[in-house]
Amino acid sequence: MPVKLLFIGDIIGKPGREALSRELHRIVDRHYVDLVIANGENAAGGFGLTAETAQDLFKCGIHVLTSGNHIWDKREAVEYISRSDKIVRPANYPEGTPGHGATIARTPGGVKIGILNLEGRVFMNSLDCPFRCADREVAKLKEETPIVFVDFHAEATSEKTSLGWYLDGRVSAVVGTHTHVQTADERVLTAGTAYITDVGMTGAFDSVIGVKKEEPIYKFVTQRPAKFEIAKKDIRINAVVIDIDETTGLALGIERINIPCGS
């Protein structure tokens, strides 16, 4: 039997958390999911993660949280993040950065899953090279398991696609996060790595990438600062289900999910 992973796109604030609390168990049962991973860097009020919101997400059935550049937005959570092996931050941050860039999770059946988080550099922070970091981190994870999942938190489609091809055949999946817009290019690459440029977001779609429409529009029109607030209408869950061969670690398939959850 293949291992089935569910990855949930960027969770945006309370609306996203509540949608998962209501719907996640149904998705897991419908797709026979073995392990649930989600990007949680925007789960607390739309910016950052707290210990409380992380624990709520774990209680609703998420096993591991990945993140990105907003993981540091809640300063009070840094100590919690640094201690937890169920939360990963981009591995290509400088040496000495709190937290873990990769982790090993186990399915209920005992299968080990390597999970790696990386952040892009195009239109993003000036970090270590995610490609060379991936070489190092993937090699370490594959000493323990052939199954390696990569969340690449990046802005540019070209950078995401390049990493997908760079790691093709060496990891089970490369999925993109950060832009909050689900792309329709999910596929298994030629050497067996599942890929999608962006999984999308879990939150309000009557919005501009999860926040109330009026505020970013005002900022673009006036070029003046605006305080963003989380939107609450047209809630959807964006995710992918990935089938992986337990022995080879190669992907057998990837399915894109977009589930309306009401207002």
Results as ranks from 00 to 15, higher is better:
K4H: 09
D10T: 00
D10I: 00
I12N: 12
G16A: 11
E18R: 00
R22I: 07
R26D: 01
H31I: 02
N39F: 00
G40K: 03
A43Y: 02
A44F: 10
T50A: 11
T53P: 11
G61M: 11
S67R: 06
K74Y: 05
K74I: 10
K74A: 06
S82H: 06
K86R: 14
R89L: 09
R89Q: 09
A91T: 13
E95I: 04
A105G: 09
V111L: 11
I115Y: 11
I115A: 13
N117K: 13
N117W: 10
G120W: 08
F123L: 15
N125V: 06
L127G: 12
D128V: 04
P130T: 04
P130F: 06
P130R: 02
D135M: 07
R136L: 15
E137Q: 14
E137F: 12
E143W: 14
V148M: 06
V148W: 06
F149E: 01
F149H: 05
E155G: 10
A156P: 10
E159I: 14
T161N: 08
S162T: 08
S162P: 03
L167C: 11
R170S: 13
S172K: 09
V175A: 07
H178S: 14
T179E: 05
T190K: 09
T197S: 15
G200I: 00
M201R: 01
D206R: 13
V208H: 15
P216T: 03
Y218Q: 13
Y218S: 13
Q223D: 07
Q223E: 13
A231F: 02
I237M: 05
D245T: 05
T248C: 04
G249F: 15
L250Q: 12
L250F: 12
L252E: 03
L252Y: 02
I257T: 04
I257C: 07
N258D: 10
C261L: 08
